[in-house]
Write a protein that binds this DNA or RNA. Sequence first.
DNA 1: TGCCAGGCCGAAA
DNA 2: TTTCGGCATGGC
Length: 276
Amino acid sequence: MKISQHNEYVKISKLTDFNLSHIFECGQCFRFVRQQDDSFIGVAFEKVWHLYEQDGDIYISGTIEDFELYMREFLDLDRDYASIKTAFATDDFTKKAAEYGCGIRILKQDSWEALCSFIISQCNNIPRIMSIINTLCATFGNEIEFQGKIYYTFPTYQKIASLTVEDLAPLRSGYRAKYIISVANALNSGEFDFERLENMDIKACRKEVTKLHGVGIKVADCFLLFGMGKLDAFPIDTWMKKAQAFYDGDMDPEKYGKYAGIYQQYIFYYARSLGI
DNA sequence: TGCCAGGCCGAAA
DNA sequence: TTTCGGCATGGC
């Protein structure tokens, strides 16, 4: 991987196992939107980012300092995905899954944003999840300007904690609104905090996170994987059941080791591509 | 129009 | 401990 500054963009050369569409459209985050020219624009860490691929190189808006501060970890650029895929693709199903999602990187998203987003995701579809999150940001986030257009940051939990369920009515998020308020309050009061999870094993994390009102095992695992970088978090049973609906393979969860979360995302992405 | 979406809660058995 | 109805809304 080679990094250099090109005008307002950082150019990354010799980056393999990286595909913007696979990363942003596999359902792990909801704020990066494909543009007409197939580039992606999204908001993360209170900044707007524009990413595109050209002649095999990746370009990311901002300075090298911005890149090092946010994007290197966010995009999980220091992980060896080639080795992961080799270890993962051990049978027909996992080979197809790894091939289908070949450019996926597991994003390390802001913890609160990931937790709140996956609360919204429950029993919902992706277009509507994105719509609710967009309204949440446009209503309660801060404006930021980028290349002449206005974008909105994800509102802080402190901001959400100052609101009521009624205040969230414009989101049309249904029964999820009370969960959002409840979790924001738990964070704001210190009853729950992200730092406590840092050194806990995955089992203890699940126990802690599912104490939150409106957070079950599925939301907890997505949050731990995409919002806490806990790569051993994944609801494999759910996806194995779905996978078995069309694939007559023998999937042993025991063999999914420390990269289980990434496996889950490959399988999830592949399963979704097949409409299951 | 009707089904169902990357679930969770709480009551009942 | 497991099962199951209810929950809000809108994409398809």
